[in-house]
Amino acid sequence: MMLKTLFMSSALIAATATTAAAQQLSVVCSSEQDHCDLVANEFRAASGADISLIRKSTGETLAQIRAESGNPKIDVWFAGTGDPHMIAAEENLTEASGANTTNLLGWAKNMAEITDGKAIGVYAGALGIAYNAELLKEKGLKAPACWKDLADPAYRGEIQVSNPNSSGTAYTEIATLVQLFGEDEAFRLLAEIGKNVNQYTKSGSAPVKAAARGESVFAIGFMANMVQQKNAGFPLEIVAPCEGTGYEVGAVSMIKGTKNTATAKQFIDFVLSPDGQKLGAQAQSYQTPSNLNTPVPPEVGNLSSVKLIDYDFATYGSSKTREKLLARWDAEVKSAGGAIEQ
């Protein structure tokens, strides 16, 4: 009797359940939920195509695409920092969509060239420093203006930054400093800053949130996260380092082996068009859009005045450089002290 119940119920589930229908475009989006939803709705309205979208972080998406390779359930991967997109391209998990890139800015085209058109830049966001203005005043500290200021011994135990072994944000920071100061000098500086670090967080956006809530005075992260927290009402101030700073390129990729090539291309064209890109600012996701013709919203305008370095994605996006820099970070920065809980 019990067996039969068990058996009947599993049969029932099997009989009523459905697999995803092939004609529906399945998109994973690694931007913020509001941004993702808006893009999905507008694309549905503009093209009439059936689209289902879910938000997952870049790391989770990459892990899923790897596990599913050969029989993908995802058609397009939209947004999220460019490094994992480039890794996916390098591992042949994505394929060229052939989207038109003539109207895109240099860095977006550059990414498409490096990856043979598999990943195309959608937006860019600069790296920066944030501090909690109230806490800074309370502690009587001076606001930093440059990367080198962060090595000030007065900041001991007050800086939070993510761990490059788990977070792409911290890796962008290391690569930026290496490109600014040269490798040896950069690691010396990182070790100096490391002495002031209270915690190397796992997630890239955690330090900014901690600074917003006053759990740490300073944080290193992407400015888009900082603007978001500041707009939410936290007493956060944003600093664009005087030496110049690096940036991430958010990308869009078509998954290799998708059965919905035509709709996938249509979606990629949409997110590269001004109509698709202006949605970012509407959803309060303040990054620099990659299409020349997309109007740049005023909040982003302030950020685009920051001094950007000529970030070499071909070198610093490759697994070889990454492994070398991370090994050096483990040896020279992580072990150099800091990470003091106080």
Partner: peptide, 12 residues
């Protein structure tokens, strides 16, 4: 957490 980041971290 180490396992989680060994799977989804920057260096999988």
């Amino acid at each position: 957490t180490e396992i989680y980041f060994a799977i989804v971290g920057a260096v999988a």
